[in-house]
Write a protein that binds this DNA or RNA. Sequence first.
RNA 1: GCCGGGAUGGCGGAAUAGGUAGACGCAGCGGACUCAAAAUCCGCCGGUAGUGAUACUGUGAGGGUUCGAGUCCCUCUCCCGGUACCA
Length: 869
Amino acid sequence: MTVELFQPNQIEAAAQAAWNAGDVYRSDERSDRRKFYCVSMLPYPSGKLHMGHVRNYTINDVMYRHLRMKGLNVLMPMGWDAFGLPAENAAMKSGQPPARWTYENIAYMKKQMQAMGLAIDWSREVATCRPEYYRWNQWLFLKMLEKGIAYLKTGAVNWDPVDQTVLANEQVIDGRGWRSGALIEKREIPMYYLRITDYADELLAKLDEMPGWPERVKTMQANWIGKSFGVRFAFTHDIRNADGDLIHDGRMYVFTTRADTIMGVTFCAVAAEHPLAAAAARNNPKLAAFIDECKRGSVMEADMALMEKKGMPTGLFVTHPLTGAQVPVWVGNYVLMSYGDGAVMGVPAHDERDFEFAKKYGLPIQQVVAVSGEAFSLDGWQSWYEDKERCACVNSGKYDGLPYKEAVDAVAADLAAKGLGEKRTTYRLRDWGISRQRYWGTPIPIIHCPTCGVVPVPEKDLPVVLPEDCVPDGSGNPLNKRADFLQCTCPKCGGAARRETDTMDTFVDSCWYYMRYTCPDAKTMVDARNDYWMPMDQYIGGIEHAIMHLLYARFWTKVMRDFGLVNIDEPFERLLTQGMVLNHIFQRRTEKGGIDYYAPEEIDLTRDSVGKVIGARAKDDGKAVEYAGIGTMSKSKRNGVDPQDLIDRYGADTARLFVMFASHPEATLEWSDAGVEGAHRFLRRLWQYACEHGVEASQESTQDKTVRQLRFEIHSTLKQANFDYERLQYNTVVSAGMKMLNALEAQGSNEDSKAAVGEGLGILLRILYPIVPHTAYVLWEKLGYDKKYGTLLDAPWPEVDEKALVQDEIELVLQINGKLRGKLTASATATREMLEALARDSAEVTKHAEGRAIKKIVVVPGRLINVVV
RNA sequence: GCCGGGAUGGCGGAAUAGGUAGACGCAGCGGACUCAAAAUCCGCCGGUAGUGAUACUGUGAGGGUUCGAGUCCCUCUCCCGGUACCA
């Protein structure tokens, strides 16, 4: 065998040329093998790949190649989540239309993926910004509108009063617009919503039938849906609005999961947007000012939860439905109009938030439940109230002594008798608002007619095509300035009308792209090919998508099912949530309060004597930069690492090997390239060894002792690698490959070992191939294994020779009182009694027992003997 | 704040159902080869004490269960992800 230098560029070019020539990754539906459909969450075309992408697609590629060798009909497609905010941001900077930026990024990133040698069937490529894709977003939206699954309602957005535009949460920094620096206001505007809450029960219940999903993801989704049982009831009143009409027919509804504490209500709180608040503010300038204050600030849950709980009395009272007491109504900044009825009952004695609110504003606190053995105190919050199963009513009149469940039943029955309340199941989950006041997205197919009102675009007029030459400038949606898009005729009356300019949330795009891959040229949304490939066998993507994307995609699938488009309930059979790849973040505040991010390579770090980072400066101006800790790699934070340098320097196989070896796929990974050299060194060694020792196993291995030892090493390592492949723990598969090469190298080459070396090398190339396909593929052919097994793409997966694993003697650990004290060698067939005797008579036991009597001997077969004295 | 997850040598990580902690690498140190360097090869490599055998100690902190705990339970700290308009 001629020894050539290991030259990744040549090797990878040759392998990829062979694959492309044979179009070897194209999959179809005619195979008689079992299908396996595996998909990586489609990337946003932000410009360049980063390490998170490399990790994601390599995991998918490893799985593809492994299972294809195992004889499955595997499909791995790829596409682009091509609509979204970053393209508009880039447009504002460069003056180029988002479409151009997006298509250029797609072209570049596709080239990078091809250089990685991924087994992608590119004939199925989908870009969500193409009309032939998003027309079906529009089509299904119209069907949902028809069925009432989509509906119109108002919702709160961030309004920048200076730039006169709606901002995304990300564009609001410390309550100010990222470009204008202006204080942001909440504004209620009409939006389309999808009734995901109608599916809440099924979305929750089905989680129990999804064994292929990680527990943590199912727990997060279940908590997000947040099913709770309680009572919805009304406080009555006779408060009227500006027109003199009774507000909400004189009923202020609230929901509670703790109806057993209803006798402890000492106040109520409503949201700033609640009609009662508006009514009270009419003649109360101070309250009006407070309501205005509440409307400023963030709409984000995290901010809301952290902000100081503030309130102001309205001077209005409502009537307690059971006691008839007059209860003061407050406006609270922590009450959300979008959650439930926008009003809550206040029971300061037994709700932590109400307790703090009452303490702050001097409201009465009255104990109405107790747990035996626990003392009630006004000094601080006591968590035993939260343990509702232990609670029983006190100071509650007829309910006294009733435990939680009975008390809730009794209260609910009494409220129902008065026609003021009933038991109700509620969800934390809210309907999904999909309207975005942005340009670069799927146009919502609606026409506004002065005569007919809101008119859906007829199906025959789909798609409503988004013009691709707009350039956003930060002052609202550019579609509003496009007469050719805006002006249209009403499909109902034929009169002049205006087209809707809101576009859809990009989460709509990612709800079903994986179904379009199965039939990218279908004349309908999906066709029969989708029934072949779906449900997807394995979905792979970042843990950050554990809730929203995955829940929306599940919901969308159920809607498609209910329209008869698919015959599955759940889209994803198995889910692998890849850990985030993190890197350092450096930032500097702009004058207007925005944030400029600096890439790590643009920074000089100063460290103290122990190497701890104590300062950071920008290389360009030498001035200080704030270190913002560590966070997930992203374009927006500019802390992504482009894998291209790695690929150019060491080749794709080294990059793939290194990323797979670095950690378990599901573990978070702090980026460091220390160790890349080691990965490359390993491939070089493999190449060198294979070239020098490559022989086809043609004869039976001898029974020579070192040969038997080598075969034991190879087959036990193969067994481990098989197990690790099954549980998708690819980092230890790499370890197994390294161990195997170590074992082969340790074995000198001679006539006795020739067959075993040939066998071992054939196994090694196959277990490494999914991870380093180019090197393994080229070596496989160079060494002639293809003549025996065929091309490595479809070569049979190696089988463990159980006979090679049989050993005559085994080593057991000897413990005394659980402490390691020595080792024993015993026959593999030794009985428990023999092992106990062996331990009893050992020098270690004599020494460490120090004359104490043996109480017990624990024998773990094949592992250890623990002598308890 | 709330929900989910994580923390193991100087570093990345391994330990499959509670059973030898540190596999496999990186870095480092010592040596071989070399005029020299690189590359390569061999050896050492958690800490403390000891020439050594060995002993003690050690998986974020504190407590518990067990013959035995990185792994199970309780309390806490820090970090990461999500928190509904980043994707």
